[in-house]
Design a protein around this nucleic acid. Sequence first.
DNA 1: TCAAAAGTGTTATCCTTACACCCATGT
DNA 2: ACATGGGTGTAAGGATAACACTTTTGA
Lengths: 321, 321
Amino acid sequence: MHDQATRLRKTITARKGRGIDVDLIAVVTAVPDGEPCVLTQGQRDALPSGPFELSHRSLQSGLRDWVEQQTGHPLGYIEQLYTFADRDRVGARREQRNISISYLALTRREANAVSRESHWKSWYAYFPWEDHRSGAPEAVKILRRRLIAWAKGASSVAARRERRQRAAIAFAFDDRAWNEDLTLQRYELLFEAGLVEEAGGDPSTTLPATVSGKAMVSDHRRILATGIARLRAKIKYRPVVFELMRPSFTFLHLQQTVEALAGRLINKPNFRRLVEQQELVEETGETALDTGGRPAKLYRFRRNVLDDRAIAGTKLPLSRA
Amino acid sequence: MHDQATRLRKTITARKGRGIDVDLIAVVTAVPDGEPCVLTQGQRDALPSGPFELSHRSLQSGLRDWVEQQTGHPLGYIEQLYTFADRDRVGARREQRNISISYLALTRREANAVSRESHWKSWYAYFPWEDHRSGAPEAVKILRRRLIAWAKGASSVAARRERRQRAAIAFAFDDRAWNEDLTLQRYELLFEAGLVEEAGGDPSTTLPATVSGKAMVSDHRRILATGIARLRAKIKYRPVVFELMRPSFTFLHLQQTVEALAGRLINKPNFRRLVEQQELVEETGETALDTGGRPAKLYRFRRNVLDDRAIAGTKLPLSRA
DNA sequence: TCAAAAGTGTTATCCTTACACCCATGT
DNA sequence: ACATGGGTGTAAGGATAACACTTTTGA
């Protein structure tokens, strides 16, 4: 795992003595062949990261530097996710605070391989309960049972109801519909309930990785959950999917990419019309022949919609006056 | 302006030598009597802020400490806005980087006065072009002319078109509708065009404060713009307005608060139905008699909708399968 | 009686959803 | 022929927007 970064950080910490460290950390996502992947560093499942330094021109460029250096992969689209300080974080010392500024980056997995210590891993290796493309996975059912048990274990009636309620919303009990945007809430709930490895719970109650997912270093899995939640919410109102697409693509490619991110299936004809109506794409004139059925038209993203559409999204009953 | 904070910061910086400073900074908003206000510190229009320190339990609690200490005002609802590092920031030194973690806080202006150096100031003193509650203000027309001139001053045809295009979107030229959510884009555009004081432009082209607005310390006005933009976007999909309301209120109070934030008028009957349909409020049983007309029913916020409604907000054509 | 604000009704329109169906190609 | 995916049609239901209108109070 990014030994270089770790070494450097230690050097700096040693030089400064007590103080505040600032780290940059990236959730780099690509969707090769309809599987949403995150770029990890080292054997221990870490997100690429490194300290923010005086030499960096900006936070973003610092992040780009680290990721490119560690993974060999240049970044395109970047947006800030969240900043947090840890107290409870693993390895945190009293006289040293660590601040992490996290980013979401969207890219395509290119042919030129990433560096040796970097790997593309499926989101759903870390969050098996999040992939509903083939119906609700087995993991969900098991976790539901565990969460109900956890809710019952609360000390007061109010606390039991509150736990039960939160679990029901996040994991869709009681005839609720599954809401794919609640990825972060679900992870936090499982953490609280001691059902993920990072929570450091009782080994006797430990679940297999196919249910509770692979753990990550420190709080990186929480950061990944934040990134997934943000992206799932964002694809609904901004055309960010196209950052993950090749220059030309069929409607099915596009749909499968959205489905991979959302973790659920969407309706083909309606999806097509949704995209067409917003004029997000235009025909290239070519067709893809390797579709297995009727050849599909190829499309490209109309980049100018980014300027053109300031996207109203009103939702308030405005007045004429 | 928060001398204590400044002094402390200097002490720390001196002790650490070169390094990275982390500041917490708050956009504290209340809407007393239908005027959206921000809490400022000192005579020079600064947002309340202070360094993040080892003694703080978390970023949020550090922020609460600073704001309460500086302004005497306890905070309720808080959300993180954005984190940035400055290079170009006024007063930035080469060997010292400053990181600011900004927050949006919503509260009510309480009777117990804030401390002497704190003031509630209208948003629209800083952004006169943002208040469209009585139609497009004069400032908009003047700024439009200046922006058109600025666009013409670009070096290439492409750059001229690009500037003109951005200005047209942000300031609603060419029959475009005004989009209140673009507060940040508008401020950034004016900054680029040298039309706000912070841009440090030619004094001969300087506009009066009734047009270009009051300047703030450092980049605080940009942070305020970020807060306004976030809040304007958020009231459309989350019931955060209620953080600004008294425990009981009439529909008109509620509407006027939303109008104050959005900077535009909304349609009364439709607004009422929107709120009713989402079951956001319930009658208290009382009526307000001081309305000037027919007495209005008083309502309270149904706090449980926060749990209850995980808010679908789908917007993707999901599939049955 | 009038001004002012509260509150209701009604319609046209658009968007979303669901589902049925036809089209073009390879094997 | 038929499987596979590409692509179109359409009708029901709900949300939104626009605007006309009635109700209840104080001055």
